[in-house]
């Protein structure tokens, strides 16, 4: 079942089209990630989907409702973490939790949520005393208070240190294990790879690629890179003898073989053995989302140095 359906979404700011004809669906119980550089239209998309911004065109359904028309009814069933939300000055953790609990019909017990996120001892702290990571955890706690079917996370980990970021990832995975659907935006490719069942790469308001992480990498058609050290110059020999090699580059003693076939490795090793060529420090680099992203958006595409 599709929990979120977006068809031909368009959002304009004066003359600038921030979101340009975007369509995707999010399946129940999955983690869907929208990935793109800053200013790509991620936040605008998420805000149109939750009804915080009026769309200029297209159709949006969240749990079967148009977020525009069924305005308040929907918010009992979704949890939201917005980018850059601050909190009231001088409010304590338990007070903001009480405040949010009072808004929903059937809220989860926030004390249990605080415990789960390791924040039970911060209950009486002022929000302003918390670290960035702790504040983001509170943002998730507040998003979970309605016991939501869908959770929206806008740039949850931006600005956090690597340790906090990984803690956040564990939290997000747990949401999925509880059967909730997660829609998140990020500009960290590692994050998208680690968390998402399905990703949508967006650039300048348009979808560049949509699918599982593997699908997107395949779609980009980027070569595997096998590299090793050897003494003689066998560049031409490899090109002539092994099928499916797109190029061979020699950098000092190190040879790099590019190919879109993963099993070119087998052929290469057999070839080297047959010819009695001695090799050291062999390494294969599988293309990842980072390479795919750069290639698909056509921006600053460079083969990553090993």
């Amino acid at each position: 079942m599709n929990v979120i359906e977006v068809e031909n979404l368009v959002k304009k700011y004066k003359s600038v089209t921030a979101v340009d004809d975007i369509s995707f669906v999010v399946e129940e119980g999955s983690i869907f990630g929208m990935l793109g550089p800053n200013g790509a239209g991620k936040t605008t998309t998420i805000e149109c989907v939750i009804g915080l911004k009026q769309r200029d065109g297209g159709r949006v359904r969240v749990l079967g409702h148009d977020p525009k028309a069924h305005f308040k009814k929907l918010y009992d069933r979704i949890g939201v973490q917005l980018q850059e939300t601050a909190y009231q000055d001088r409010i304590r953790v338990w007070e903001i939790c009480e405040l949010f609990s009072s808004m929903y019909e059937d809220p989860l017990d926030y004390k249990m949520l605080l415990e789960r996120f390791d924040l039970a001892d911060k209950k009486r702290s002022y929000m302003s005393q918390l670290s960035g990571g702790q504040r983001q955890k509170i943002a998730i706690v507040l998003a979970l208070i309605p016991n939501p079917e869908v959770v929206f996370l806008d740039e949850l980990t931006t600005g956090l240190d690597p340790k906090s970021r990984r803690e956040m990832w564990a939290c997000v995975k747990q949401l999925k294990n509880e059967g909730r659907t997660v829609f998140l935006t990020t500009h960290y490719m590692e994050e998208a790879s680690a968390l998402c069942d399905k990703i949508c790469i967006i650039d300048e308001g348009r979808i560049v690629a949509l699918g599982s992480v593997d699908d997107v990498v395949d779609l980009a058609g980027i070569d595997y890179v096998i590299s090793f050290e050897t003494d003689g110059d066998i560049t031409q020999m490899i090109k002539d003898s092994i099928k499916g090699v797109s190029s061979v580059v020699r950098e000092g003693k190190r040879l790099k073989v590019y190919s879109n076939r993963e099993d070119v490795l087998t052929d290469l090793v057999i070839f080297l053995k047959d010819k009695g060529i001695y090799y050291r420090k062999i390494d294969i680099k599988r293309p990842g989302l980072e390479e795919a992203f750069l290639k698909l958006t056509g921006k600053a595409w460079e083969v990553e140095e090993l």
Partner: peptide
């Protein structure tokens, strides 16, 4: 202050 800190926006995506 509530507007500038986006607190009002946060309330807009609740049933309140």
């Amino acid at each position: 202050q509530y507007r500038e800190k986006k607190i009002l926006r946060r309330f807009m995506v609740t049933p309140v």
